[in-house]
Design a protein around this nucleic acid. Structure first.
Lengths: 218, 218, 218, 218
DNA sequence: GATGAATGAGTGTTCATTCAT
DNA sequence: TATGAATGAACACTCATTCAT
């Protein structure tokens, strides 16, 4: 016995809103706290094992607050990945925008990758997301869009601008390289968690530099 | 997955059995069918989402048969990964044992990796396992042992024998290289499923050859 | 995150069944107890307010037993109405089959209706069902079939045989009369519960006799 | 429906109101819109399934407005039935007050009943109410009063005045006849919704005329 | 008076696991 | 060894109701 369905909405202040600001602010905070809590819980337990109650409790709220902010479990999950991806883009741009020479860019990129790899939550969430996407093909437009955005991040959009000679490649080449980098990063990230002893910081940086290098060379 | 627990047993024929051979055979078959079914279901749904009933049904049995053969969900899961790892070793040895030159070895290794990457079930199961191991550190000896065996597969044991010059490296170097190869393979495998268009057979083989090459060069 | 769906099955003994009889018997008993409990609870609380837990508890079982026997709440509900309708038919046939004269038939019919009206559970369940059917048009074949069977009970099927001169009417006339009788019975039944003081046994019987009479006169 | 509880209040203008008339008007409008919406939703979904949110939304308001106007779900529900009953009385009086002969009265009454039966919302609400009253005996004075008023509508109060010879009957006879008419009307109303094909306008009018006739004959 | 974020109890349903047969 | 009825804990999600603004 189901029911229609509302849409999860991020509370936004409107100029002509009759509701005072205080309330809005608290609502936004709640939303953020829930997202943060969800990140932690999803990373820790995996999507399927994560409990809404744990998420709510970690945010200092009740289950009801969760459902005021999100349609369902999948809704937050995707919201988190979208969030992460946006953060990824910002980080990337911040790290790369001031570089000029190829050497600088390569080093900045390697550093960027290193930070990505060392963010255990981000790593686990991204893998969880990829497994999820693989197992739920074209489930929904939102999922598909995010899927595409991740695959195309270096071929389309702003990030491409900062990759130096890379930008002269054809679209198909860029996408291929993006995928290769993804593969290298994901593999490193998960195996570093699986077998930490085999991945010293130095070794990881070496590998990342060579991965970054290939983005400019060919 | 709480509750006391018996021990998972592989059906064995008893002397006083009325129809010894038949019974044993059927029991072994049931066991195998269940393992095969479990592989499929775990790969398809993930560990947490997999239902015992689906596994049993896919094997043409009922839940009861499952619990006759395995202690619990985790038990089959690890059994499957152990199985897969054994199969991996066999495949590896079969593929490498007849090679002599470094070139041959490199090519054989690349081919071996290619087969590994293309076995979608194996890929998903191995990732599932690594995520599981990361999330359940030292949960049990059996898990830890398997964890170690996988990390050390090229440094200890038979496989090391067939890797040519690689075998002259120090233990720590071998383990590092093993981890690097794992990372490369895992990353390729999952991203190939996530974004198939970006990984043509040719491209994957190229990448695998260079991965294999590094095992011998340095 | 839903799931396929099993079908509620009434346990049936098969000749070649390997399962001993004892178990089957208990299963059938459980099923019956659940149905009986569900009747009581649905009649008492209404479909929407009825709790699966109450039904299970009243049958001396747990919720799990309920879901072993029925797909969901609606499943039992319809099963009960089907049951009731079958019982109605049996009662009707038992009450009418030995009558010969029109007077006998009329009296037997009035007595039959009286019993129907006085079965408070049956009354509340039938009203609940009609409201449900009205609110969920063509929801499912099973519901529609039952709906039709109830509307056509005197026009098609065995019952028509025992209604004397009534059987010479055209199909459309029979259906109309069936509907008129339903209306009279339902109205009497619910208002007798709503305002018991206004419906003495005598008065109800008088009304029922005149309702029954009209089935033969025109 | 637990919790302490305030009293449902019909919005009234206060002397010190800044924009007295407007505010009062809007408040009254809101109240009416909510009642109308509630009628629709209760009729559509039934009392138990009706959602406050749906009611509020249908009235173009939010849940808060609902609770400003009504104590709880049951409060609106009874308010609606009271409303309906008052409307019923008005309709009845309007339809009957100008009649003089018994024939006129009979025809007017049949017409009145016909309108009642054809108001699907009214029909479903009244049945819902009767089921509710049956299931919650003496729950509260308000419910009991309404219950009684409905049962006694032709025996006590204004309506009795217009029923010609009927008014000479004893109180107990009047109440009995009222109940009989209720039964006939309710039964017709619900079964017409359940099996519309069997109740043409003509047929329904014929039945209603004979029901009305009996109110005067005996 | 109205908003809507938040509460928290409630409940349908699922599913790993047990156990009598 | 295998069955499948039954258990019972777990959980996602709903919704009446409250309350600060």
């Amino acid at each position: 016995m189901p029911r229609p369905a509302k849409h999860a909405t991020i509370p936004v202040a409107f100029a002509n809103s009759t509701t005072p600001v205080k309330k809005q602010e608290r609502a936004i905070q709640t939303h953020e706290h829930l997202i943060m809590a969800a990140r932690k819980v999803f990373a820790r337990d995996g999507f399927a094992q994560a409990r809404i109650e744990d998420i709510a409790a970690l945010a200092g709220k009740t289950r009801g607050a969760f459902y005021t902010n999100f349609r369902d479990k999948e809704d937050v999950f995707i919201a988190i990945i979208e969030d992460d991806f946006n953060r990824y883009k910002k980080d990337f741009l911040r790290n790369l925008c001031r570089t000029t020479s190829v050497e600088e860019k390569r080093e900045a990129l390697a550093q960027h990758f290193y930070k990505v790899i060392c963010d255990e939550q981000r790593v686990l969430l991204m893998l969880e997301f990829k497994m999820y996407a693989i197992r739920h093909p074209q489930k929904k437009k939102r999922l598909a869009d995010l899927h595409h955005a991740i695959c195309a991040r270096f071929s389309e959009g702003e990030m491409s601008q900062y990759l130096g000679e890379f930008k002269h490649k054809t679209g198909i080449e860029k996408r291929r390289e993006t995928a290769r980098v993804s593969a290298a990063i994901d593999g490193l990230a998960i195996n570093r968690l699986f077998d930490p002893e085999s991945f010293s910081e130095e070794r990881v940086m070496t590998l990342l530099r060579s991965i970054a290098a290939e983005l400019f060379d060919c």
